[in-house]
């Protein structure tokens, strides 16, 4: 080795002591750097919203199916006081897939059903992920069919928000909004997960979700894809059906917010 000073030859079995010391120092520095960067990035991520997806926790529910404008299950409001609606209209999607529930409840409009599902909720907003094959019509057996939805006209509104899909945004994906989630929201909406306009009032820390339908009340899907996941302005007629807010608007009349504001 005397003719060698510290020259390193990788295919030899060992390296000189000086080289080894240097390499050790570099490895320690690299590990320290990686540790710092892992911690920094983990800490700097935007806060995750507090949605809940009770994945794996299938439960049985009884309620009345409503097929339009998006599949819903109308259930008695849980622990409800006179301050809230006595009934809740839960949006439905298909458990275990990026899919809507239209096929699972087809032809059951107005019927009482028993089904198995998994809850997804964010604040007071709930979606039920229906287990395929579990829906059974039980007719009047569990009581009289629910009366028609109580519809309250809230008038023409102009709203700023972001189109999200109900299933992801209520808790299946966190985050379930914004640029990086855009493609997923698009896939979900194209596949039948109910499209919502998510409106935030940051100052008061409040948020609203409105089911987006056409001006004539038809379900919307693929035509929303150019608008999903970015800041837009929508004008339309708002109706509350039970506790579900529905926004009747045409995509042709959507407007984009200023370019870099789409956060």
């Amino acid at each position: 080795m005397s003719e060698r000073d510290d020259f390193y030859v990788g295919w030899e079995a060992s390296m000189s002591a000086a080289t080894r010391r240097f390499v050790r120092r570099v490895v320690v520095a690299a590990f320290a750097g990686a540790t710092a960067i892992a911690g920094a990035i983990a800490a700097l991520q935007a806060p995750f919203a507090a949605g809940v997806f009770e994945y794996g926790d299938e439960r049985e529910f009884v309620g009345v199916v409503r097929e339009t404008p998006a599949p819903q299950l109308v259930v008695s409001g849980p622990a409800c006081t006179e301050l809230c609606s006595a009934r809740s209209a839960w949006l439905l999607a298909r458990y275990g897939a990026k899919r809507g529930a239209a096929e699972l409840v087809r032809g059951l409009d107005g019927r009482v059903v028993r089904l198995r599902g998994v809850l997804v909720y964010r604040g007071d907003q709930t979606l039920l992920d229906v287990v395929p094959g579990s829906v059974q019509a039980i007719g009047d057996a569990a009581g009289a069919p629910a009366p028609p939805a109580v519809a309250v006209e809230l008038g023409e509104r102009r709203l700023r928000g972001e189109i999200v899909d109900a299933k992801c945004h209520f808790g299946v994906m966190r985050p379930g909004s914004g640029k990086t989630h855009r493609a997923c929201a698009a896939r979900c909406i194209a596949s039948g997960s109910p499209p919502l306009l998510w409106v935030r009032d940051a100052a008061r820390g409040r948020e609203l979700h409105l089911l987006l339908v056409g001006a004539d009340g038809r379900a919307l899907g693929r035509e929303l894809l150019p608008w999903v996941g970015e800041a837009i302005e929508v004008s339309g007629r708002v109706v509350r059906r039970d506790d579900l807010l529905v926004l009747h608007a045409e995509p042709a009349a959507f407007r984009r917010e200023a370019r870099w504001a789409a956060r």
Partner: peptide, 8 residues
């Protein structure tokens, strides 16, 4: 995560 199990 973002693309599977949908319509495409």
């Amino acid at each position: 995560q973002f693309h599977a199990l949908g319509d495409a």
